[in-house]
Design a binder for these strands. Structure first.
Lengths: 338, 338
DNA sequence: TTGTATGCGTTATCAT
DNA sequence: ATGATAACGCATACAA
């Protein structure tokens, strides 16, 4: 069923049907109703593909997620859901692409074929080839996370440096003098993953500012790595009384290792970090942490992208999220000794 | 950059360029190379929208997910990721639609506008209006879960009845005589949600078969509901020594309540169920459970859909997943008394 | 208030 | 081995 058939049956021209539908020029009430009757009867709906071809836009945005083999984090998954809902509110569809590393076929398909009007790029690297690609194509995009040179680009990010710094402040104020950072994986750091780098920097700065002892550990994004990591910390650095972390997926293992070591939280050991609320509340006792604002971030990313699509040469918008640290029960005064 | 421009610069017709690219008719090596050179130089890529209009298909499938306000479960999220990857392997894109209940705008957009060649429908109800819609449109689709009348349709599902039955068998074999089922929420049951209904049936059958005492409790999909639910069970039915559940999101609360009641697992209380592996492993001690095979399910759903798109009138394929129950450490012999 | 004609970028049919 | 041309379904500039 197409617009021509509707026109024929209603005894009008195609343009009249089109205008009756779009309202972009006046159509007499009589013909409008006749047309509508035919449309209702035949259940006609305009073909979105033809419209996209004609209009030169798809009313669709691309969402590039990391390949699932590296297991999506809870935070990422919440973000995907919130982007989908925000897009829906703007009457936009979302074309999903799982890409990253060498697995970029779907990214190419979506971008090369101009299937989308703009792209939201998750899990950006400090130097990201996909960003260069999008720039070269002149396709509007928003990144989640910043590249090394984010000037002139549209992005949103979480201020991991500041947040980790605040965690250190908090722990130092409680008297802790030997603090460990449990960062993301070595591979992630090596590949230039911003959050890991900025967590490191924020940690180093804060530790230096307080003149206390800080050490960093990389840790894969899973529970058993977290367990091993804490065991290693306790073994090699018995003086450590507190940990700060940006690795939410490691938390269950962190908890286990501390329990097994008989270290009561927060009486004998403190921990604070940055994590999705889900993980913070899952921790026992609940974790003092900056909750990652996934829903806000998704909505903001869509807002920025929609704005940029409408006005590609407008000023690039950027937002650094600094969510408050929720004081829960995992931090307390440093114990006299361990 | 379009195919006409390439043709002009290569000094050939548009059809020659098209054929050179598709290989659907022979093109002399000389012109092929000349064309390729121009393409490489100008970075030409065919416009997917125009191709879709011409070919009458989009090489895209729709994935309808439940609205995120009800928080996507891990299982659902894993499924989304696996569908995306399976689609990518088949060179298909995935258009995401979050719909369900009254929030069906994006479903309409995708389906009415013929933006997709087929649809994967998650979280099906026993009587689902979207299924009727897709049938009426003649759009190929695969459902995750079955409707009440699944004959003639393409679907995959998890055999909750059998799995819950097996959990009961296992617990009965261990000597438990008073077993509770922690099902999904009252609302979900009321709305005709298949897994909840079939868990109930499987439970009732198994309990009757063993001639033991079984009782069912509905429980919202979150930790605190799980906690309340277990407290209620322990209070009202102190004779209960084991629980089986299909409510993974309630597990953290279940655990908390049992801990608070001082009921050691599995010495004084046993629990077995159906859950994503993530949740089973998160439980302490690790949960004896049938792990939901999200990745297999995603791949299978895509396979079925691709097949159906290619051959809309072929026999509808169906698969009932009965994943093995992984024996972990949450079940043991019934205690003498409680 | 309505109709006619054109083009969006492809692919495929027919012709050479 | 290659070219000209007609669709695909829609929106809109131009006419009337």
């Amino acid at each position: 069923m197409n617009i021509g058939e509707i026109a024929r049956r209603a005894g009008v021209s195609r343009s009249t049907v089109s205008y009756a539908l779009s309202g972009k020029r006046t159509v007499s009430e009589a013909t409008r109703q006749r047309i509508q009757a035919v449309i209702d009867e035949l259940g006609y709906r305009p073909n979105a593909t033809a419209r996209a071809l004609r209009e030169g836009r798809n009313r669709t945005l691309g969402l590039v997620i990391p390949p699932a083999r590296g297991r999506l984090t809870f935070m990422q998954l919440e973000f995907v859901a919130s982007v989908t809902e925000a897009a829906d509110r703007a009457d936009l569809d979302v074309l999903l692409s799982s890409s990253g590393g060498d697995h970029d076929r779907s990214f190419e398909r979506i971008v090369d074929g101009r299937r989308v009007d703009g792209v939201i790029l998750m899990e950006i690297r400090l130097d990201d080839p996909r960003v260069r690609r999008l720039k070269a194509l002149g396709l509007p995009f928003v990144t989640i996370g910043r590249t090394a040179r984010p000037q002139g680009m549209c992005w949103i990010d979480v201020d991991f440096a500041t947040l980790v710094g605040r965690c250190v402040n908090h722990l130092a104020d409680l008297g802790h003098r030997h603090i460990a950072l449990i960062n993301r994986s070595t591979e992630l750091v090596a590949s230039g993953y911003g959050p890991a780098h900025r967590a490191r920097e924020g940690f180093a700065d804060a530790v230096a500012r307080h003149g206390i002892d800080g050490m960093e550990f990389c840790c894969a994004d899973d529970a058993s790595a977290g367990e091993t990591c804490v065991q290693e910390i306790l073994r090699a650095h018995p003086e450590v009384t507190a940990v700060t972390t940006v690795n939410e997926a490691a938390l269950p293992g962190v908890q286990r290792a501390l329990e097994d070591a008989g270290l009561n939280i927060p009486a004998r050991f403190s921990i604070a970090g940055v994590a999705a609320r889900f993980w913070a509340e899952q921790f026992r006792p609940q974790l003092t942490a900056a909750d990652l604002p996934a829903v806000d971030m998704g909505a903001t990313a869509v807002d920025f992208l929609v704005e940029r699509i409408a006005e590609p040469d407008g000023p690039p918008r950027q937002h650094l999220f600094v969510p408050p640290i929720s004081l829960r029960n995992s931090t307390g005064p440093a114990p006299a000794a361990r």
